[in-house]
């Protein structure tokens, strides 16, 4: 009956986000909606990172998936409309993930991490150099649905969070969780027990990258402007991994709780400091690894892979 104990929490969070625009927030309304937008988007990123990490693949390429989705959607949005552009962006990110995943199948742990980082940086350089991306000057992106509905971006990001939560929850409470956990803990043993490790790893990476790509697409439609430094930034991957580690790895609840706390904190900090707010992420990462290796959710009780 462990399954039921998490659902009320998850539903509560999601309901809160769904209703946020209708709560009487007064003069803080616009600011809180912006904060909510970023919490939803980066929590979705964190959930998608965690989904991949459950197979032992530590992705530092989430910034690249985000960027591919952002540019894919941003380039196509003026021609085909919001939703098809977002789907296209997600597919571009997915294609990148399959490319990365299929050549790095034999790399484990930190070697996968370093390879994914290199992959990410190569893509960022390309985005800077290629003509159709607008290079370092950047790419203007139209607002969603022609800008007729002010809450469109907010609810698009809510949709991405909903999708990420649903995927993560499914993977956590289905046999897929055992396949992922077995793959993470020992690939050789998992294979001898019949787990199709290659498929498990590629599917996890693909699903994670689709969510990251969607997040990127929606991000561009909110900021209305993309630059390679921003969209392909390693900082995206840093956020995406610090949140689950802070909240609690290999779970749905952990990244959700971590995302609300950390992204909320980050948005508040940005009021005070423009650059360098990642200091907080670095410090939290160190402190959590040293003193709270199972994250916030780990404080609540024993967790299983």
């Amino acid at each position: 009956m462990r399954e039921l104990s998490h659902l009320p929490f998850l539903s509560f969070f999601l309901l809160l986000f769904a209703l946020l625009p209708f709560l009487p927030l007064g003069i803080w309304g616009a600011f809180l909606l912006d904060v909510g937008f970023f919490i939803q988007l980066f929590t979705a990123m964190a959930l998608s990172w965690d989904l991949v990490a459950r197979t032992g693949q530590l992705s530092l390429a989430h910034g690249a998936f985000f960027g591919l989705g952002a540019y894919g959607a941003g380039l196509l949005a003026p021609h085909v409309g919001t939703l098809p552009a977002l789907v296209f962006g997600a597919f571009v990110a997915g294609a990148g993930a399959l490319l990365l995943g299929s050549v790095t199948l034999r790399l484990h742990g930190l070697y996968f991490a370093i390879a994914s980082l290199a992959f990410s940086e190569v893509l960022r350089t390309l985005a800077l150099k290629l003509a159709f991306t607008g290079g370092p000057i950047g790419l203007p992106v139209p607002p969603p649905f022609g800008g007729v509905w002010p809450l469109a971006a907010y609810y698009l990001s809510f949709g991405v969070l909903l999708l990420a939560t649903a995927l993560s929850h499914w993977a956590e409470w289905s046999p897929f969780r055992l396949a992922q956990a077995a793959t993470r803990q020992s690939e050789a043993v998992a294979r001898v027990l019949g787990v199709r490790v290659v498929r498990v790893k590629l599917w996890s990476l693909l699903l994670g990258s689709l969510v990251a790509g969607l997040s990127g697409g929606v991000y561009g439609m909110k900021t209305l402007f993309l630059s390679p430094y921003d969209a392909f930034s390693l900082g995206r991957a840093v956020e995406a991994l610090v949140i689950p580690i802070f909240g609690g790895l290999y779970s749905t609840l952990g990244p959700l709780v971590g995302g609300v706390v950390l992204v909320g904190l980050e948005q508040a900090l940005r009021l005070w400091i423009k650059e360098g707010y990642l200091v907080v992420y670095g410090a939290i990462l160190i402190l959590v690894i040293l003193f709270l290796p199972r994250g916030l959710v780990g404080l609540l009780g024993r967790r299983r892979g």
Partner: peptide, 21 residues
């Protein structure tokens, strides 16, 4: 080489679920 983060039952379930598709 048990999967240390899984319970004994879950360890066996890995074999039972994926050993025969």
């Amino acid at each position: 080489q048990p999967f240390p983060e899984l319970s004994v039952r879950e360890n066996l379930l890995v074999g039972a679920l994926f050993g025969k598709p």
